[in-house]
């Protein structure tokens, strides 16, 4: 049999492969830039000081380069956000998949997905100018910048992600499992918790991981509403800077290219990238697991 390959076809295939590889190029670019600038930074500052110093004051006359205050800010706002979003998002997903009629589900789900495209700077506006004043009515001593209001708004923001992805996972559980359980006389709630949730657990976990990764990487809400002062505190009622807010603060100023202050934002970015990368890989593995199961 004769098999002739058209050279034009091969050129096109090569070009398309190149386009697909460009996404790998982006990752290499991110890792390369972050590592390159961080390497310059770590020539001046030891890794031990970076990980253990309790102060982050790179722009002061007496500079300290401890990432802990920024991490505590990120973890506190993320914690507040998750405390709100995980229970609410999960209950909503269960309601939509197990209780709601098809009509309600088909209306609410696109609406939730629409909400994920609301620009985050608008959520920042809400946090600073709507939610904080409301919280101050309940708690007059609350400072104008605080992690509580930023965290709550991030929580509201990630509810659509969590409920939508969890609902997909719950929906993917085959109907015959549900029917078997209902036929045995279990209520919808018992079916939901003892049959559907255990079968969809890796999908729900993937939704959680996605939500956590979003909350950690969220920038505008914390930069606007949580304050810019790096403080080592776990109290959500106080203002504190997060890793992302610090990057914004430095970028807004006029730091000369190549100075150590300029490099600190890449170190902060590297920290952020490593943390979210771990969560993303975990989420990807969980999602492929539940896709394979049925």
């Amino acid at each position: 049999m004769m098999r002739k390959r058209n050279p034009g076809e091969q050129i096109i295939e090569a070009l398309l492969l190149l386009a697909a590889l460009s996404s790998v190029g982006i990752t290499l670019g991110i890792v390369g830039v972050l590592l390159y600038e961080s390497a310059v930074f770590f020539r001046e500052v030891s890794v031990i000081e970076f990980l253990t110093d309790t102060q982050w004051t790179p722009l002061f006359a007496d500079p300290h380069y401890g990432i802990l205050p920024l991490l505590s800010g990120t973890m506190t706002t993320t914690g507040v956000a998750l405390a709100l979003a995980l229970p609410l998002g999960t209950i909503m997903a269960l309601y939509l998949s197990e209780y709601a009629s098809a009509g309600v589900r088909e209306t609410v789900k696109p609406f939730l997905e629409l909400l994920t495209s609301v620009p985050t700077v608008i959520f920042g506006y809400f946090a600073l100018l709507v939610v904080t004043p409301c919280l101050q009515l309940l708690w007059p001593a609350l400072p104008g910048f605080n992690m509580l209001s930023a965290g709550l708004v991030i929580g509201v923001m990630i509810i659509p992600y969590i409920s939508s992805v969890s609902e997909d996972a719950l929906h993917a559980v085959p109907a015959h499992l549900r029917e078997g359980s209902l036929a045995m006389g279990a209520t919808r709630m018992q079916t939901a918790f003892r049959v559907v949730v255990p079968s969809a657990v890796s999908g729900i976990a993937a939704a959680y991981v996605l939500g956590i990764s979003r909350a950690i990487g969220e920038t505008m809400v914390v930069a606007i509403a949580a304050g810019m002062q790096p403080t080592l505190t776990w109290n959500p009622l106080e203002p504190a800077a997060t890793v992302t807010a610090f990057i914004v603060q430095v970028s807004l100023g006029d730091l000369p290219h190549g100075s150590i202050g300029y490099q600190t934002i890449f170190v902060a970015g590297l920290t952020l990238f490593v943390v979210t990368f771990l969560f993303n890989v975990a989420g990807y593995m969980l999602r492929t697991r539940y896709h394979r199961k049925y």
Partner: peptide, 27 residues
């Protein structure tokens, strides 16, 4: 590798893309 990479890129915080652009495009 390409597929895992794309899934991961979709979850990278947007500010990290900004840092890459600063360290590559701007200077």
């Amino acid at each position: 590798v390409i597929e895992i990479n794309i899934a991961n890129l979709a979850g990278v915080p947007s500010i990290v893309y900004g840092l890459m652009a600063l360290g590559l495009f701007v200077y």
